[in-house]
Amino acid sequence: MKLNLNIQPLSSWIKTGSEPLLIAGPCSAETEDQLVATAHLLAKTGRVSALRAGIWKPRTRPGEFEGIGSIGLEWLKRAKAETGLPTAVEVATAKHVEEALKAGVDILWVGARSTVNPFTVQEIADALRGVDVPVMVKNPVNPDLSLWIGALERINNAGITKLAAIHRGFSSHEKSAFRNEPMWDLAIGLKTLAPELPLINDPSHITGNRDLIGYISQKALDLDMQGLMIESHIDPSVAWTDAKQQVTPDALVEIIKHLTLRKPEIRNSEVKDKLEELRNQIDKIDDLVIQKMAERMKIVEQIGNYKKDNNITILQVNRWDEILNKRTNYAKALKLNTDFTEKLLELIHAESIRKQTEIMNKDEAGQAADKLTHA
């Protein structure tokens, strides 16, 4: 089911300039000189469509630098006046919205820590009623697509039609090379539900490491995201916040120059015909896979009934280990990715357990319902 969002195309509220769309600037506005000098260098590249800077910085723990505050808005005004770059700022309260709009900020964004709280999002949405300003909404800290969608809907319901989403990755307990796990499937899920919604990638927060920004940026563009938000500082080595994930304006240009831009539409008829042929083959195989899966589940039902009749536990650990080992080895021989195979098998196994549990408890559930009915 598609989302019913009333939104304007990205090109109606921001000049994309050279592709891809690029929003850049320091993680935090630290001093007036730092911000304005960075803005000049970014404008000089000819690649940047808007200048971003953190004015209010919600930190995980108190005592850390939490943003320069409202005075930074005056620095942004100066940077915009001198460079012509539109400005973008994160807002987390109604007061932030009021001050940012009063200072002439062109684009607002809702941060991950705010998106996770519907009360906060609603407060921001209420402050935006009657205002014609672009708003971008970052995904929540935790991997919850519904929270992300809910925040977008609240902002849209307030009358904001210049709307975009920002994919900045999600917190995870698993250790990896990334500061925040991309979890691309959630971003793809949002694009599937809202194809017209502009989706911008934030590789700085996903990676937490400037050396990986190019890699994540390319992946995002390959998934048809409309642009990038990358943190850039005149001298990242002395940055007050998130120094490791910021790049100089010159380094930013090098990253962008090495990105390959691919078009979503197919114009070459020969290529289109070949892709159609291959997709038809995939459709046939998918139909066969689903058919075989249905046949497998019918056998699972028979097993469930047999276990019930013979008072056998649903979970047979040795059998599951046997399936996992045999199938992963077979898949490896067929050049299938091991992680993919294990996740697929786990999904199938979970559904098998669910069906057998349903069979085991069918009579008990009916008896419980009868007792409630006659209570």
Rank of each mutant, 00 (worst) to 15 (best):
I149C: 04
I359C: 05
K263S: 13
E358A: 07
N361M: 13
E254T: 15
A100P: 01
L345N: 03
K191V: 10
H173R: 13
L259E: 00
K326M: 01
G169L: 12
W240C: 10
I303T: 05
E98N: 07
N209T: 03
L336M: 12
I299S: 12
S146F: 11
V133T: 06
A331H: 03
A81R: 15
N117M: 03
F178N: 06
E351G: 05
L147E: 00
S232F: 09
S70Y: 15
W13S: 03
F65G: 04
P118G: 04
C27D: 03
M229Q: 09
L163V: 05
M1E: 09
S269E: 08
E19M: 04
S176H: 10
E342P: 05
H349L: 04
N142V: 10
T45Q: 03
L344G: 02
N4H: 11
A100S: 12
L261D: 00
S171I: 14
M225C: 08
E276S: 12
L324P: 02
S146C: 04
H374Y: 13
I256K: 09
D202N: 06
A239I: 14
N305K: 13
L193G: 06
D286M: 10
D286R: 15
A79W: 15
V131G: 00
N325Y: 12
R210Q: 12
A350Y: 08
G214L: 12
E254W: 13
L76A: 11
E342D: 12
I23Y: 05
E346S: 13
A239Q: 10
I255G: 01
